[in-house]
Nucleic acid binder design. Structure first.
Length: 294
DNA sequence: TTCCAGGAGAGAG
DNA sequence: CTCTCTCATGGA
């Protein structure tokens, strides 16, 4: 067991349970998940993270890897201070203090958010679990068993029936086409990782099944582009009712959000998104009464 | 039964 | 450009 000390302004719970990763399971006080081919067991005690890995890696490999994955090197208090611009953001930041944006493996994030469209988190998790069981490699950490996320070449040769059996629904061909594009080099993952936010987003959106919202999720949750702003129905609703107080196009929301929150808009978005889900009675908040929009 | 879920694409206007 | 309809699936 390896410890990561002096981890301040970090919440393992909010980071792993805020809908950016679909691979973590909480058992008692610990989170089990598969990241890039090995199982991690992570628990947080104050400012200490206790980590176990199914791979035989020493502290000098594991700690830098997880610090990057969990975004621990970022000055989050400074970033949050910059987007703490109103009472509502203040509440979200206070409530979810320490939530960070993960830096997840690129291909898994591409595939996961292709599957996320018109879907809910519980079902997305189930689909990804079944895909991993069916097409991934088995892994063990003590008594805990899981599977690696399947590589593009495996999914590229899967039949539609096999993908449908995992519950992908009509997204099966989107997933397989993306996998084939990675294999063929049409979607060059390593070079996309080097691109700017807007370049990477444009390349991703050339794939069938990746629109603006999914591309932004990939850019934000995998590539570290904090200027990315995934606009789903809830983020749209928040900006329309709380900030703009009128119906607005995605373009208008995007423009407002960038001028209002600045470069850390992606982080701000994640706090807003998770806050409305954590507080399911968000409409009851006295300052956020639902406004009738024509 | 209908509605909804971290949407996207095709078609019409 | 915007609006509308449909897509597969399962839980509420």
């Amino acid at each position: 067991m390896i410890q990561i000390q002096n981890v301040t302004d970090f919440s393992l719970k909010y980071t792993l349970e805020s809908g950016q990763s679909f691979r973590w399971n909480r058992i008692d006080n610990a989170y089990y998940g598969v990241v890039e081919g090995r199982i991690f067991k992570i628990s947080q005690e104050g400012t200490t993270l206790c980590v176990e890995s199914s791979a035989s890696e020493d502290e000098n490999q594991l700690v830098p890897f997880l610090r990057h994955y969990l975004d621990l090197a970022r000055d989050v208090p400074k970033l949050l201070a910059e987007v703490n611009t109103d009472a509502y953001m203040h509440r979200a930041i206070e409530r979810l203090w320490g939530m960070r944006i993960l830096n997840q493996e690129f291909w898994e994030t591409v595939a996961s958010f292709i599957l996320s469209q018109n879907n809910n988190v519980a079902r997305i998790r189930g689909i990804i679990r079944r895909l991993s069981e069916r097409f991934g490699e088995p892994l063990m950490l003590a008594e805990y068993a899981d599977y690696s996320f399947p590589n593009p070449d495996v999914l590229a040769t899967a039949t539609e029936a096999e993908l449908l059996a995992c519950g992908t629904g009509y997204r099966a061909n989107y997933l397989r086409n993306a996998a084939q594009a990675v294999v063929s080099g049409e979607l060059p993952l390593t070079s996309v990782k080097q691109m700017s936010y807007l370049e990477a987003k444009a390349v991703l959106m050339r794939r069938d099944g990746i629109g603006e919202k999914v591309a932004d999720c990939i850019c934000l949750f995998s590539l570290g582009h904090l200027a990315a702003l995934p606009i789903d129905v809830w983020i749209k609703r928040i900006f329309e009712t709380l900030y703009l107080r009128r119906r607005a196009t995605h373009r208008e929301i995007r423009q407002f959000a960038h001028s209002y929150f600045g470069d850390g808009v992606g982080y701000a978005q994640q706090y807003l998104f998770h806050y409305v889900h954590e507080c399911s009675n968000w409409a009851d908040a006295e300052h956020l009464s639902l406004i009738e929009l024509e």
